[in-house]
Design a protein around this nucleic acid. Structure first.
Lengths: 184, 184
DNA sequence: TTGCTTACTTACTAATTAGTCAGTATATTT
DNA sequence: AAATATACTGACTAATTAGTAAGTAAGCAA
């Protein structure tokens, strides 16, 4: 998938953040599988925070790409597409960046904290609009402010991955089905 | 609050897990503030996993005590009491153990993984019963299976603390109010 | 009073951590 | 052909990590 070393490092770091968490992986966890030296990782990403920021930025770009791709779909379908992305994560046994990085928030370097914030507000902003438009067209049904509902939806998606890993089995299916039933 | 060294260690570890995460705190973070030596912590808790397990067990006991105290209250009130506990956490800026430990699940020693599982299933079991009884008495209103709804409620409580820390301000209030409105 | 338990301290280890710096081979540019 | 930039390697470092082993002071028990 990735062909440059830099991309391979981001790929691996992304996977490590989603499986072990930001504080539980080391430069050795990246350099060893790629058969490069520690210093090579530092060449591309001087600090661990720089690496973390690149991982978030790539995720943000990837998400922006998906959202643009869904632009002409009805809002309930857009929401289902987002759920699909989380379902793929569930199958892989990996969690989302929000679920991985918000618990570690206080330990992150300041520039990374800012990126985590940017990621959360960005996702919520899109989701708020999606819910609002969907409700206006009576394709989505919920009570209260759209932003509040967006918080709940993000919450459910995020937690479904966390709880799936611990409770296993059909936890993700149960939660995503209930989420869809409640809204559509 | 705690008078023995052992209790003080558990207190501090609990706070560190909720603020920094299990992998981001060290024995030094515990021994230094208590003005004891590293080895003293190891005396009470041979491994870090042992300490983590004790923290979870104390939380489980504390929760069991609360639940017993609420036994004779109507189910909607019991749920509100649980939300109150999370609100206190939100004020302190600390997250819940489920929110802190499930993202790190894969990195935890096996006996601690088992305890995390026990904690999740225990909370969900109580909440499922609470929701079911509450619905039977028409004091709580929701669609679908009670267990599925319990997953969603736990999800919202857990995430409200995670997102509060990043988004700040009224995030917890928004989410907990919406949660109560949806159910009661 | 002798022995045993509890709750530590002193002093340590081996491993791992993020990060540095000087060098080098290979392209690319001038 | 000379200079420069890119993408590394080799060889470190200082700090921190969880964990250990031996010793000790105080209290309690036989």
């Amino acid at each position: 998938m990735a062909d440059t070393t830099k991309e391979k490092i981001i790929d691996l770091a992304d996977h490590l953040i989603r499986t072990k968490g930001f504080n539980a992986f080391s430069y050795a966890d990246i350099s060893a599988p790629l058969a490069i030296k520690n210093a090579a990782v530092h060449y591309h990403f001087p600090t661990k925070g720089d690496l973390g920021i690149s991982v978030i930025e790539r995720e943000l770009q990837s998400l922006a790409l998906h959202i643009r791709k869904w632009e002409k779909m009805p809002e309930d379908q857009q929401l289902k597409k987002l759920i699909d992305i989380f379902q793929q994560r569930s199958k892989l046994g990996t969690i989302c960046l929000v679920g991985s990085l918000t618990p570690d928030y206080d330990t992150l370097p300041a520039p990374m904290q800012a990126k985590v914030q940017e990621m959360c507000t960005g996702i919520l902003q899109w989701m708020t609009q999606c819910l609002e438009k969907g409700r206006a067209q009576q394709r989505l049904h919920f009570e209260g402010e759209a932003y509040d509902r967006a918080l709940m939806v993000l919450s459910n998606l995020l937690s479904s991955l966390l709880l799936s890993r611990v409770l296993g089995g059909n936890t993700f299916q149960r939660m995503s089905k209930q989420l869809a039933k409640d809204l559509i």
